[in-house]
């Protein structure tokens, strides 16, 4: 049974089409990865799924609800760790977590317990009472993750959760997420630029580029489809090697032309 169902979803920013007519399904209890170069439309899609942006076309069903007209029901179905910062810098680590717990109606006994556990888990126990504005980038990121794990939703969105984290923490976090997925049947929808993370934890992977989904399948399926050995090679094969920065394109052409002429890589 699919818990997320997307059909012909489109989003425009003025004339620019950020998400073009995409369709996909995510099954209940699945770990689903959304991979794509910078600016591919991953975060925009997640924002539409999580009621933060209104689509310009297409249909979404999340836990059988429509985010456009059943915002409250949809919001009761998911949790999210955003790509961009979303903490209150003027509150302490603990207060940020409490705020979240209260908004999500986590009973206070469970809330207290989980806050303690999660702060320990992300190694911020001794900074519990510090204002978030005194934290380093990585510490803030870890707190965002702890907050996302505080209430246990049906669907958990993780938009580049491991951005800027050290390998130890990344490993640690994925183990925890996989455990939640196994034990509670939580559906996980995540994006990342670390291919090995997707390779290791994702059941299925969708590759999106320039707002379009260009491939969906397991890591092995993507590899065999592109005749490559690693997911990274498969990814590069599918999305090309040009850098996704409009200004870089002309330079890339030059580089490509030179390569062709000189025969070097």
């Amino acid at each position: 049974m699919s818990i997320i169902s997307v059909k012909n979803l489109t989003k425009k920013f003025k004339d620019f089409v950020a998400v073009k007519d995409i369709s996909f399904e995510v099954d209940q209890g699945e770990i689903f990865a959304f991979l794509g170069p910078n600016g591919a439309g991953k975060s925009t899609t997640i924002k539409m799924l999580t009621t933060l942006l209104h689509p310009d076309g297409g249909m979404i069903r999340l836990n059988n609800f429509d985010p456009v007209v059943q915002g409250d029901e949809v919001r009761r179905s998911f949790g999210i760790v955003f790509q961009d910062p979303s903490l209150d810098d003027e509150l302490t680590a603990e207060e940020n977590l409490e705020f979240h717990g209260v908004l999500y109606k986590v009973p206070s006994s469970i809330r207290e317990k989980r806050i303690g556990e999660l702060l320990k888990f992300v190694d911020l126990e001794d900074r519990r009472k510090s204002l978030v504005k005194t934290f380093s980038g990585g510490m803030k990121r870890r707190l965002e993750i702890a907050r996302g794990l505080l209430h246990h939703p049906k669907i958990l969105f993780l938009d580049e959760p491991t951005l800027g984290l050290d390998p130890q923490t990344r490993n640690h976090m994925w183990n925890y997420v996989v455990k939640l997925n196994k034990e509670e049947g939580m559906t996980i929808f995540f994006t990342t630029h670390y291919m090995e993370e997707a390779d290791k934890v994702a059941g299925r992977i969708a590759v999106i580029d320039h707002g379009k989904i260009i491939a969906v399948g397991t890591s092995n399926e993507l590899k065999s489809k592109t005749n490559t050995k690693t997911l990274e090679e498969a990814f590069l094969n599918l999305t090309g090697t040009t850098i996704r920065d409009e200004e870089a394109t002309s330079k890339d052409y030059l580089r490509m032309a030179r390569r062709m002429w000189t025969g070097r890589k």
Partner: peptide, 12 residues
């Protein structure tokens, strides 16, 4: 500063 997103996705 991004905190608004946190309140906007909350089920309230």
């Amino acid at each position: 500063f991004g905190f608004l997103k946190e309140t906007l996705v909350a089920p309230v």
